[in-house]
């Protein structure tokens, strides 16, 4: 995978099974976000193949019904409150078939009750990050791609988020692939830690023992990305 003449990822061979949480770790610029954007289909590898949910990333309605992504800071609608935004997300994914949480419950879980009727533009960066993550869980999905979800979040909420991902999202069959710098967050989420260095996978560690119980073989993400 290359940006112009800059090669970012090489010899990537990674398979993720359904219900698994995978944490891509590594120093800044190592290619974690690039790998996520390959999985989302935003970028195509120069060589090799990417398979997501049984085929190449397809960029169609069926694909985006199954895949949710939280990457860059989104642009907010002026005039829509945080609660209305979550309702909008649910509306765009009708009919809601599969695990997801209603707007009111998400507002509660993500600690946005006091600011639920405020514009996202008036929220702090941490609250906006909470809202972005809540939006990803407001609709059903089979694969959740998270780019540094811990960004701007306080330590306490990171733990709560990790627990939510492992005990509710992954437990209901959802797969999570995330890029993170927070090893504790990954461990709490029971993630399989995949360290990257110089554009290659340098190890593949089971951070916690729970993942074996949730492995499903049918569909998942397979590499290599070269």
């Amino acid at each position: 995978m290359a940006y112009g003449s800059v090669v970012v990822l090489e010899d990537i061979d990674l398979t993720v099974t359904a219900g698994e949480i995978v944490a891509l770790t590594g120093v800044n610029g190592v290619g974690k976000s690039t790998l996520l954007s390959c999985l989302a289909g935003f970028r195509r590898p120069a060589e090799g193949a990417v398979s997501v949910l049984g085929g190449p990333p397809r960029d169609n309605a069926e694909f985006w019904r199954s895949v949710a992504i939280v990457a860059d800071q989104p642009t907010w609608y002026p005039g829509l409150t945080a609660r209305e935004l979550l309702e909008l997300v649910r509306m765009t994914h009708q009919p809601l078939r599969g695990w997801c949480l209603p707007a009111d419950e998400l507002v509660e879980i993500f600690g946005l009750s006091a600011r639920a009727d405020a514009s996202p533009l008036s929220l702090s960066s941490g609250q906006r990050q909470r809202l972005s993550l809540a939006a990803a869980l407001a609709r059903p999905s089979r694969l959740l791609l998270l780019d540094e979800p811990e960004q701007s979040l306080d330590a306490g909420f990171r733990q709560e988020l990790a627990t939510l991902l492992s005990e509710q999202y992954a437990a209901s069959g959802g797969t999570v692939v995330m890029a993170t710098h927070d090893h504790d967050f990954a461990v709490t989420a029971g993630a399989r830690v995949v360290p990257l260095a110089e554009g290659r996978i340098t190890g593949d560690t089971e951070a916690a023992g729970e993942t074996e119980d949730r492995v499903a073989a049918d569909d998942g993400i397979t590499g290599p990305v070269a």
Partner: peptide, 16 residues
Amino acid sequence: LSPADASWLLLTPLDR
């Protein structure tokens, strides 16, 4: 396309 539409309507099952 407005940036807000790109953020919230594009990566959805809505007819593109």
